[in-house]
Every structure is written in structure tokens, then in C-alpha cells.
Amino acid sequence: MVQAQAVRQLSYIQAVNEAIRQEMERDETVIVMGEDIAGGGDREDKQDAWGGPMRLTKGLVGDFGRQRIRDTPISEAGFVGAGVGAAASGLRPVVDLMYVSFFGVCADQITNNAAKIHYMFGGKVNIPLTIMTGIGAGTGSAAQHSETLYSIFTHFPGLKCVVPSDPYTAKGLMIAAIRDNDPVIVFNNRQLMGIRFDVDVPEEAYEVEIGKSNIAKEGTDVTLVGIGYTTKVCLDAAAELEAQGHSAEVLDLLSLSPMDDEAILESVQKTRKIVIVDEDYPRCSIASDISALVAEQAFDYLDAPPRRVNPPHAPVPYSRPLEALWVPNKDTVVEAALGVLE
């Protein structure tokens, strides 16, 4: 099959950067806060020394200035909390929590303030806050810099959680998150930042709707559900399964809260088998949640029990061969799929 080349290719990093830039141009209440998002402090000749630890905010300080692109001290409780306050009083802040594993430092601000203020205050105060955070293993960063942890945040009513899977969804979900009037956490997988994607990223601003999944590949025999990086793993596994004569459908979840239950159930009613591939720890995971959903609401359609593919119940190891075992990969997904196909 000959595929047309994407018209406008961007890297994941460029896509996120463009999303923030376009929203800052459109809406002057959008500001960004975080550690080293510009870098170099206020030294005239050293502006934009970093542009973010993952370079997601590179170049923004030059265009929007330090009033709106704010480097912070290493004080997550302070600046995430300040993001909540700013959101409650007229701004639309984007806060960069460098790695999701640091959420513990500022958990109170996220779970007790960002998530609950709208409800507790009788719906009279909005918190249009976007938190973007780096997730994912596979980079040799060991246990404190490799987690995904999104399932923890989906536990809290009041928070929305999205996980882009490529540059197109990275841009569209980031824009949707910034425009949303509720707090949204955007989980950016670091492995996706190093992959070249042949997907078209339109230049104009667009939203990928929060709460909607996407069928990344149609199929009839088994549904593979992917989240962020694992969507890529599922696509690779689907190609392998195809070669073995099995037609796999890949559902790219994109949004974890709210979750597109309907699309999951629809796909499963068609394929009658489901494998959920989730890079988060197995206990109380999104994979478990979807498994329960399918068992409750599509039981009569299932030809096999739902199958979850998660890392093991262990922290992320540093040593390269152990880390490679930890992250779900094409082979583990193919094996799981063959397990339900038999």
C-alpha cells in the first residue's frame, strides 16, 4: 500500500509549542509558568537559554515576554497553586510540571484546589487551568522520572485528563485543554518526542475534542486500546497481527477523563475481544477500569475475557535490559492478542 506523505510534518515538541503559541496570540490571558520554561533568568543576553526541559516552550519568551512566560523557582506547590489562583481570577494559565512523578510535591493544590473549587463554590468559580507534564519510561531515567500515573488523576472528579499519541493530537488536545474552562492535565510521553511521525499537522489552530477517542486503525477480530505511547505500540502490534492473518482494530483513547466509553463498547461489540495496553502500574489502572466497563456493559458480546497489558507491579528500573522488560512492547501486545484470539 502506497501512503501519501503528510503535507505538514511537525515533531511532537513542535506541535505542542505551536499550540501554546497560537493560543497565546489569540488570548492574552494565557500565561505559562514552570521551571526553566525559558531559562537563563532575567539575564538580557541569555534569554530562552532552555525553552523548557523538553524544549516545549522554546522561543515563546521572545515573542511574549517574561510577563507571560514565567520561569519559577523549584516550588511546585507554590506555582501550581498560583496557577489555580490565577485561573480563578481571570487568567488562563498553563503550568508545566516537569515530570508527573513530582506531582506529590503539589498534590494538595491539584486535588483539593484545582479539582474541587468549581464544585465546592457552587459552580460560581471556574478553574481554566492547564497542567502539562512529562511521562513515560524508556529513557533510562529510573523510578522517579519515568512514571505515567494518569490513573491517579482520573480518580478525582473535577479534573480532566488527556494523553496525546502523536503531533496531531498533541496540538489539538493542548489547544482544547487551554480553551477548556475546567482544569485539564495533558500528559506528554517523552518517548513520543523522539519519534518521527508521518501525520499531517494543520497550521491553523484546531481542537481535538476532549472526551473523544479515535480509531487509529480499523479492524474486525480484536480491539487493541492504546493510551499515548502505547497507541504506537498497538499499531506496531496490529501490523504484526495482520501479517499473521488477524485484523486488529486500534482505538487511540486520547482522553482518560472523561473517557469515551461508547467508542470502546462499540468497537468491542464488533470485534468481541479486547486488549487494553496501558503504561501505568497495573493496580487501579485505566486498563482495569476499561476491563470493568467492558465486563459490565458488553459481557454478552465478549468471546474472551478482557485482557490487560500493563507493566508489572514494580517501580521503573534503571538498568536498560530491565527497563525494556518493564514497558509494554509490541511482542507483549501480540502475545496478549493471540491469547484472546485463540
Partner: peptide
């Protein structure tokens, strides 16, 4: 320096 951010900028 905290990463790239100078001490006097944040303390």
C-alpha cells in the same frame, strides 16, 4: 544555577 536559572532570579 537551578538547571539554567540563576540563583538571584529565584531566591
Amino acid at each position: 544555577y537551578a538547571e539554567s536559572t540563576p540563583f538571584e532570579f529565584t531566591v
